[in-house]
Amino acid sequence: MTAETRRVALVVFDGFSELDTFITFGLLNRLNASGWKAELAAPTARVSSMSGVTVDVAQPLEFANEADAVVFPGGLYARAIAENSAVIDRLALDPVRQLIGGQCSGTLMLARLGLLADMPASTDATSKPWMVQAGVRVIDDLPFQARGPVATAGGALAAHYLATWLMWRAVGVDLTTQALQHAAPVGEEKAWTDRLLAVVRPFTG
């Protein structure tokens, strides 16, 4: 890893959502040429997804504390994990120097870590009652919200928006557009990319 490399931690636990995780993981790693590298981080060396896909994890949970950006995908056991002080106490994130995102039930981790304050949040329907109970104002009809360096997304396919926001904040709109167009459905490159950019543009600062 060179000194110029910027690191992204996707923090996963057993029961993680494949769509939340791998869409973001795949899109962010299209920025490798610009020095950005996304890696999975977890409290164990191996985790299994909600559908039984088992993966080896490259980094320990504490990698999130030193990464330049951190993402919490959703998962089956997110509520229990967010209430587990043995996990929470190992995390010391810093929105002054890190970009931080949560998706679906992964937004519970942001709430538990005190990162949302009075920020409105997007999450999925299942996680909404838990977020409200945590004192967070949930926006029902928008898949993406961000304030400064912290972002939330709701719905598994909202991973596109969270990844786009991270890419834009990391390398700017031009390189983000190029990376998205390379991933876009054939024949829909401009329309698909323009839609993603339009959703996150108000939150890019």
Results as ranks from 00 to 15, higher is better:
Val173His: 12
Thr126Met: 10
Met167Gln: 11
Ala159Val: 05
Pro120Glu: 12
Leu175Thr: 08
Thr176Met: 09
Met119Gly: 06
Val171Asp: 10
Ala156Tyr: 13
Val171Gly: 11
Leu115Arg: 02
Leu115Thr: 07
Met119Glu: 04
Asp141Glu: 13
Ala121Thr: 11
Arg137Leu: 03
Ala170Ile: 09
Asp124Phe: 00
Ala156Asp: 10
Gly155Trp: 13
Ala125Gln: 11
Gly172His: 03
Ile139Gly: 00
Val136Gln: 00
Val138Arg: 01
Leu110Ala: 02
Ala121Glu: 00
Leu110His: 08
Ala121Gly: 04
Gln145Tyr: 07
Gly155Thr: 09
Ala134Ile: 03
Ser127Pro: 05
Arg137Gly: 00
Met131Pro: 10
Ala159Thr: 01
Thr164Val: 11
Ala125Leu: 10
Leu110Val: 00
Asp140Gly: 07
Gln133Met: 01
Gly155His: 08
Val173Asn: 12
Gly135Arg: 08
Arg147Met: 08
Ala117Met: 06
Met167Tyr: 10
Pro143Leu: 06
Leu162Val: 02
Leu116His: 04
Pro149His: 13
Ala121Phe: 02
Ala170Phe: 08
Asp140His: 06
Thr164Met: 15
Leu175Tyr: 09
Val138Glu: 02
Leu110Met: 05
Pro149Asp: 04
Gly135Ser: 08
Ala156Gln: 02
Ala121Pro: 07
Ala125Arg: 09
Lys128Thr: 10
Ala121Asn: 06
Ala125Val: 13
Val136Met: 12
Met167Ile: 13
Ala156Leu: 15
Ala146Asn: 01
Lys128Trp: 04
Ala146Asp: 00
Asp118Gln: 04
Met131Phe: 00
Phe144Trp: 03
Ser127Met: 08
Arg112His: 03
Met119Lys: 11
Val138Trp: 04
Asp124His: 02
Asp141Ser: 12
Leu116Ser: 06
Val150Ile: 14
